[in-house]
């Protein structure tokens, strides 16, 4: 009885794993190495890679700048409307990126209240779109990290003469840093993979607003499969690295021993 159950389980799981493996394998074998090497040397592909890296890194920095204070407040302060704010932060995670893109498009468009800013079809637009979609991941992770800092430890710092800011810098932030780091990784990966909102806001202008994901779409639609595949392969490598990094950060976060015996 239990062995037939186990066999059915294995079969069902096997189908799932088989499917994913098959898809990835198809993608990886769709092009030869020489084709790949040629594609990633083409100026348009290089431009897309650079643009993606630049925008996603700026997005991570901006997310840190705005997200850390937001996360800290949500994690440690009690105030009216906190639940609403908390839900608002999560909204972009579940909302289709296209809808986020549309919101930005309307806000910065001709009739929009922010129309005086020249954002649409520019790199700024890409950054705003990615920030909108990706920063909640950082805020979420940082908030959880701040919440898991023992409040007694924070209080201890205060009774030892540390101001609120000193305590934030020397206690809360160092203790939350692994959580924040995994948030950074998630946010960066999300920004790098962002397509829907970016395409809505910045369009698909080669060399100007063509990020890697936008490039994959454009080249695939125009029949240039090898360019799409080349860009995809780079993203796959990044995705794997991200996952490994994420697991590593998760592991050292679990120990709760903080860091390596400090500055011994």
């Amino acid at each position: 009885m239990s062995s037939s159950f186990r066999i059915s389980l294995s079969l069902i799981a096997g189908v799932f794993f088989g499917f994913i493996t098959l898809m990835i394998t198809c993608l990886l074998t769709a092009t030869s190495f020489t084709e790949f090497a040629g594609e990633i040397r083409s100026p348009e592909i290089i431009s897309a890679i650079l643009l993606s890296l630049q925008t996603s890194i700026v997005v991570v920095l901006l997310a840190l700048l705005f997200g850390i204070p937001a996360a800290y407040i949500l994690a440690t302060k009690q105030f009216k409307g906190k639940n609403i704010l908390d839900t608002l932060v999560d909204l972009p995670i579940v909302l289709p990126p296209l809808v986020c893109g549309l919101a930005i498009l309307i806000a910065f468009g001709g009739e929009g209240i922010l129309s005086r800013f020249d954002v649409l079809f520019t790199v700024k637009g890409i950054i705003i779109a990615q920030l909108f979609v990706a920063s909640p991941f950082l805020i979420r992770a940082a908030k959880t990290a701040f919440e898991s800092v023992d409040p007694d430890v924070v209080d201890a710092a205060r009774t030892l003469g540390a101001s609120e800011f000193y305590t934030f810098r020397k206690v809360s932030l160092p203790l939350a840093k692994n959580g924040i780091a995994s948030g950074v990784v998630m946010t960066w990966a999300r920004a790098l993979g962002e397509f829907g909102a970016t395409a809505m806001v910045a369009g698909c202008i080669p060399y100007r607003t063509e990020t890697m994901t936008v490039g994959i779409y454009m080249h695939a639609m125009s029949g240039n499969t090898s360019a799409s595949v080349a860009l995809s392969m780079i993203l796959i490598v990044i995705a794997f690295t991200t996952l490994i990094l994420f697991k590593y950060l998760g592991n050292i976060g679990d120990g709760n021993t903080g860091t390596q015996g400090a500055a011994a």
Binding site: D152, R158, T159, L160, S163, P174, G258, A262
Partner: peptide, 28 residues
């Protein structure tokens, strides 16, 4: 505010700084 009261506090569950060594804890 608490940091200007000059009152020491010893917590039930110690509440040491896990990211600092013993010396740094005492020095904090």
């Amino acid at each position: 505010p608490p940091h200007k009261r000059g009152i020491g506090f010893v917590f039930q569950k110690y509440a040491l700084f896990p990211h600092l060594n013993v010396y740094e804890n005492v020095e904090f």
